[in-house]
Design a protein around this nucleic acid. Structure first.
Lengths: 143, 143
DNA sequence: AATATTATTGCAACAAAGTTGCATTTTTGC
DNA sequence: GCAAAAATGCAACTTTGTTGCAATAATATT
């Protein structure tokens, strides 16, 4: 899905210095279809000795650079996921997240912009700059 | 907006015991157009000596009873707001929240269900049970 | 290829938000 | 009014994430 580009190339493209930590974290994120918590990523990487603070800062740098985004969960943690490839190319700001109430995975879904724009802000005076559509239910794994 | 019913009546209606804490918290929520944090509510009530834990538990009881709902914020706290009156009557599960990027207030907006339903879950296998549409931008107070 | 500059890392200590256990008090159905 | 059940207050605790700072690593330049 993230096609031919290597973590290193992607980091370059986003103006991030190429470090061990970043390559590893990016690699983990690239392999996941779902948004991951700090703990998810941490446990997939250690062994390779990476400080928890470094991981926080790495994720933060990804978000700042526009490479990833984060989603607040029900249990006051953050999940991180890379932007969809088409988002990365086009700078789209819309997001749809599907929260599975059974397994608690959060999937990032492509969101068609017309649907987002159709939402009625009848109360005028609100200027919308970005969207997040969040769906709850049961994911394919949990049927 | 919450019309004629008193906090006491509403608590009864939702099967919650009528206590000082609940009446005070409900009163505060009824007077607010925006979702409030624990801190917001706490500071509007003390003077009247209410323990922080009691407030957490009170809010929790409101959510469990279906009287209020909560929204996770960008800084990993919860905001609480009563359901819209029409939601309280009809058991609608959709939500739209407008997050003002300037003043950080979160408004609960009525969300028209057709718009929500129109979101494309082309990836089938996802069973949607509830929605939250989250909009970011600038609110009328901040223009 | 070595170096200077600048950003990143690791560690320890810290902060904030929310939770748990338990004894005491309050509600409420009878 | 009384008994049973639930809510409250307090203190200690957990979890998640942050800050300061010295040591280390990455990159542009020579």
């Amino acid at each position: 899905m993230y096609s031919k580009k290597s973590p290193k190339e992607i980091l370059h493209q986003y103006g991030l210095k190429v470090t061990n930590a970043r390559v590893k974290v990016l690699h983990v994120l690239m392999q996941s279809q779902v948004a991951l918590s700090h703990g998810d990523i941490f446990s997939r990487i250690n062994g390779n000795g990476l400080d928890k603070v470094t991981l926080y800062r790495t994720l933060s740098s990804f978000v700042n650079a526009g490479l990833a985004h984060k989603v607040a969960t029900e249990d006051r943690t953050w999940l991180h996921a890379l932007h969809m490839p088409e988002e990365r190319d086009e700078g789209v700001e819309d997001h749809a997240h599907f929260v599975c109430d059974t397994c608690e995975r959060i999937y990032c879904l492509p969101l068609v912009t017309e649907a987002a724009a159709a939402v009625p802000i009848k109360e005028s005076g609100f200027q919308v700059k970005s969207h997040e559509y969040r769906l709850h239910g049961t994911c394919p794994e949990c049927h």
